[in-house]
Amino acid sequence: RERTTFTRSQLEELEALFAKTQYPDVYAREEVALKINLPESRVQVWFKNRRAKCRQ
């Protein structure tokens, strides 16, 4: 699998949801995934990595 490159608009959507909740449920992830045209699994991994970045 190729590394996913997020567009600015995708990142804005993801960061907006992250500001609301660092642990979105599957419904919130699927909703944003549809909105930004990415698989839910990519959204899930983005949140995992974003939380790790936050802890550093």
Rank of each mutant, 00 (worst) to 15 (best):
T4I: 12
D25I: 01
T7E: 12
N49S: 08
K35R: 10
D25L: 01
I36K: 00
A52L: 13
L17R: 01
Q56H: 12
V45M: 03
K35A: 06
Q22H: 11
A52M: 09
V26N: 06
R42S: 14
Y23A: 06
V32K: 00
S9M: 12
Y23W: 14
V43A: 04
E15K: 03
T7I: 04
K53D: 15
R3Y: 07
I36T: 12
E2A: 05
R29F: 05
K35T: 05
Y23T: 07
A52C: 09
L14I: 01
A33E: 00
Y27H: 15
N37I: 15
R1F: 15
L14M: 06
Q10F: 02
E12Y: 04
L11G: 07
E15W: 02
E40V: 15
Y27I: 14
P39G: 04
V45F: 02
A16V: 09
T5K: 13
Q44S: 12
N37C: 13
L38W: 08
L34G: 13
R55H: 07
T21M: 04
R50Y: 03
R50P: 02
E40A: 13
S41Q: 12
E15C: 03
Q56F: 11
V43T: 03
I36E: 02
L38Q: 09
L11A: 06
Y23M: 06
L11R: 09
T4P: 15
R8P: 12
R3G: 12
V43G: 00
Q56N: 14
A28Q: 10
K48S: 12
Q10R: 02
K53R: 14
L38D: 01
A19E: 10
A28T: 08
K48P: 01
C54P: 12
D25T: 12
E40L: 13
L34W: 06
R29M: 08
V26T: 11
L34C: 11
K35I: 02
V43L: 04
S9T: 14
R42Q: 15
R51A: 04
E12L: 09
R42D: 15
R50W: 03
W46I: 03
T5Q: 08
Q10N: 02
S9A: 14
Q56R: 12
A16D: 05
L34F: 13
K53M: 15
L11Q: 12
E2G: 09
V26W: 14
Q56C: 04
Y23H: 14
L17W: 03
A16G: 13
A52S: 08
Y23R: 06
R50F: 02
R42N: 09
K48I: 13
L38Y: 04
A19L: 11
K48E: 09
R8F: 12
R42G: 09
R51N: 05
E15H: 05
L38T: 09
P24M: 01
E13C: 13
N37V: 03
A16Q: 06
R50N: 07
W46Y: 04
T5E: 12
Q44Y: 11
K20T: 12
A28S: 10
N49Q: 10
K35C: 03
N49L: 08
F47Y: 03
Q44F: 09
K35D: 01
R3S: 13
Y27G: 13
K48N: 11
R29A: 06
F18L: 05
E2F: 06
F47D: 00
T21I: 09
T7H: 06
A52I: 12
S41C: 11
A16S: 13
W46C: 01
E15V: 01
V43I: 14
R1Q: 07
Y27M: 14
N37W: 03
L38A: 12
P39Y: 01
N49M: 05
R1I: 15
V32D: 01
K48C: 10
K53Y: 07
R3E: 08
Y27Q: 08
E13M: 12
E2C: 02
S41H: 10
L11F: 05
